[in-house]
Design a protein around this nucleic acid. Structure first.
Length: 637
RNA sequence: GCCCUGAUAGUUAAAUGGUAUAACAGAUCCAUGGUAAGGAUCAGUUUCCAGUUCAAUUCUGGGUCAGGGCACCA
């Protein structure tokens, strides 16, 4: 006699055990048609699950996230089914739901081709049309392992072996085809609908471990309706349009070449953008009490051995041997050099906190497969700083770093920030009790910020725990940028000390922090966030002066010169093209303001402004324009 | 580093076992123009190194780099 409690508070009583479909039908006939999956006392279940005792039940349709995810999960299963029908002998492994879709990993010698994907899609549609009923069975563990081993499904057998003892081994059937799965699933293959697409094939290690064999992963997307599928595909297209590698080329900002993979060749405009950001940061940091320093790029091996980098970070370091056989390393981090600056001269507790900033260019030998435009390079400039302080000052300094970071992100148009906290990694230097102290101090500071955070176990730096600042861009992607690390190890290893109140020498705490992280990477993110349409003050070319015809070249040249004179980044286009042509060209190059000069402007000593992405015309006295926009062209400090 | 896919004027693309095709950009000339392409005339050791072949940009092998992933990470 189960009493079923519904989310709206209503209760329905049944005279005997009922399944989800029957409950849905009782609620309304339209719900029974749309029902996909249900939740019984907080656990997701198949609609065929029999509810025997009093329970709270929620029914989900494709309007709920749970429903959509089940559609994706089922689509992954049907993908596996289709692959095994078309390519017998292929082993199935795992096929989880991911954001916007799913993937399935297969073990098969021959690679899947693009053509194969289209064939598989066809087969999947056929399976949907067959509308095979889903059946669930619970098997004995040993029976299941033997069964899958016998079938040649070695990976599935391995998965079963790792399922905890207290969990059921459930097998889902669609006709004869069956697979190990926790479930839940839709009631038949027809329920997933036809709005899915296989996107790409990729390699992926078994269990995500690079020591294991590589499987073939097929990625797919699935949605409840054609409209949603089309919207998703459209969004992907839009994201491609703002790819910083494409825009960087079009806007003439930078390029890469074979002679130095992962290192940027900055063109003039890209470098201007870079310098503007550095200038802005420098001012911000000066105001926040930092002293800028600069340290060598190449340092003797012995320093890296002392700091621990040689042992813990050596695989990522470039080294160099001189003609006289000395071994140097090109710095992968700025910290050891900075500690050496701190070590010069005696420091008193009165000097602390001492904040030293450095725009340090570092080199890291990243795995070739990791390189990705500006977002992952081998040579990059950090807006780095190291804060030397006492134990008691840690929390306050961490808070002031956080404030600075949030302030800067806001100026650059990012307001949506989350924090990620990472504690001690496996490969590390220092004693555990020192780590205990560092982790506690950093965690305390982070909680005090009141911002949303998540915890990543084991992902700290080798010398200390860290907070990472993750910002969300205009199209909802997350980028990890700033970082803040508490380090109780390196100062001691490199012999840093200060004289305390009582006259004894003490080892200072060192905080490592970067605001953008890497200037290169941040510029990549900025370009994508703004689709190349950078705010006026950061834009490396702010105005283009365009004469209506060559009769007005002289006036255009004067305007250009006057704008440059007040610090506006301006150029004049005297090429032999008509006005329409030039407007199109410079709009595509994303120049914020086009200034048109013709007879009207010459006679009245004005310019006509055309803003990027607007076809409105705005006439203004040249003098007024200069006053207004020279102010706007400056960084907001 | 690992898996898959690629590499052709400055850019984006097309084609072919036998002289490589176009658009745009660039240069020159004509048109002197009012808010997203006005018209005409001029350019590649087809990524590198081998091999097969009378002949390779095309087929085969290798290198390098790039793209999509995995692993790694700012």
């Amino acid at each position: 006699m189960p009493n079923i409690k519904l989310p709206d508070g209503n209760q329905i009583s049944f005279s005997k055990a009922v399944n989800g479909s029957q409950i849905a039908e009782k609620i309304s006939s339209s719900l029974s048609k749309q029902a996909l999956i249900m939740e019984v006392d907080g656990q997701l279940k198949d609609l065929s699950f029999l509810v025997e005792k009093d329970s709270t039940v929620k029914i989900f349709t494709s309007k709920n996230l749970e429903g959509v995810e089940t559609i994706r999960h089922d689509t992954a299963h049907i993908l596996a089914m289709a692959v095994q029908e078309l390519f017998p002998g292929t082993q199935v492994t795992i096929g989880p739901v991911i954001e916007n879709g799913f993937y399935y990993d297969f073990a098969r010698k021959e690679p899947f081709t693009e053509d194969d994907l289209r064939k598989i899609e066809k087969q999947m549609l056929e399976i949907v049309d067959r509308d095979e009923i889903t059946k669930r069975e619970v098997w004995d563990r040993e029976k299941a392992i033997k069964h899958f081993q016998k079938k040649g499904e070695i990976y599935k057998a391995q998965i079963i072996e790792t399922i905890p003892e207290n969990e059921e081994i459930s097998i889902y059937f669609h006709g004869d085809w069956h697979d190990l799965c926790r479930g839940p699933h839709l009631s038949s293959t027809g329920k997933i609908g036809k709005y899915f697409k296989l996107m790409k094939v990729a390699g992926a290690y078994w269990r995500g471990d690079s020591n294991n064999e590589m499987l073939q992963r097929i990625y797919g997307t699935a949605w409840p309706s054609k409209k949603e599928l089309d919207q998703y595909l459209k969004r992907l297209e839009e994201a491609e349009k703002r790819d910083h590698r494409k825009l960087g080329k079009e806007m003439d900002l930078f390029h890469f070449r074979e002679e130095s993979p992962g290192s940027v060749f900055w063109h003039h405009k890209g470098w201007k953008l870079f310098q503007k950001l550095v200038f802005y940061m420098r001012e911000k940091q000066n105001h926040a009490g930092y002293d800028e320093i600069n340290t060598p790029e190449i340092l003797d091996r012995s320093l890296w051995e002392k700091s621990g980098h040689w042992e813990k970070f050596g695989d990522n370091m470039y080294t160099s041997t001189t003609p006289d056989e000395k071994v140097f390393a090109i710095k992968p981090m700025n910290c050891p050099g900075c500690v050496q600056v701190f070590n010069q001269g005696l420091k008193s507790y009165r000097d602390l906190p001492l904040k030293m900033s450095e725009f340090g260019k570092v080199h890291r030998y990243e795995p070739s497969g990791a390189l990705h435009g500006l977002l992952r390079v081998r040579a990059f400039t950090q807006d780095d700083a190291h804060i030397f302080c006492t134990d008691e000052q840690i929390t306050e300094e961490c808070l002031s770093v956080t404030k600075l970071i949030l302030d800067i992100y806001k100026d650059l148009g990012f307001e949506n920030i989350i924090l990620k906290y990472s504690d001690r990694p496996k490969v590390r230097v220092g004693e555990d009790d020192v780590w205990d102290k560092s982790e506690e101090a950093l965690l305390k500071a982070m909680k005090k910020t009141g911002l949303e955070y998540s915890i990543n176990n084991g992902e700290g730096a080798f010398y200390g725990p860290k907070i990472e600042f993750v910002l969300r861009d205009a199209i909802g992607r997350d980028w990890q940028c700033g970082t803040l690390q508490v380090d109780l190890n390196l100062p001691g290893r490199l012999g840093a000390s200060y004289v305390d109140k009582d006259g004894t020498k003490k080892v200072p705490v060192m905080l490592h922090r970067a605001l953008f992280g890497s200037l290169e990477r941040f510029i990549g993110i900025l370009i994508e966030h703004y689709s190349g349409k950078l705010p006026f003050w950061i834009s490396p070319l702010q105005t283009m002066v365009i004469p209506v015809s060559d009769e007005f070249d002289d006036y255009a040249k004067i305007v250009n010169k006057e704008l440059k004179g007040v610090g506006i980044l301006s150029e004049v286009d005297l090429k032999n093209h008509n006005l329409n042509y030039k407007i199109r060209e410079h709009s595509l190059k994303k120049i914020p303001l086009l200034l048109i000069c013709g007879k009207k402007e010459v006679d009245s000593n004005t310019v006509t402004i055309r803003r990027l992405d607007s076809n409105k015309q705005e006439n203004m006295q040249l003098k007024e324009f200069k006053n207004k926009f020279s102010l706007l062209s400056k960084a907001p400090i």
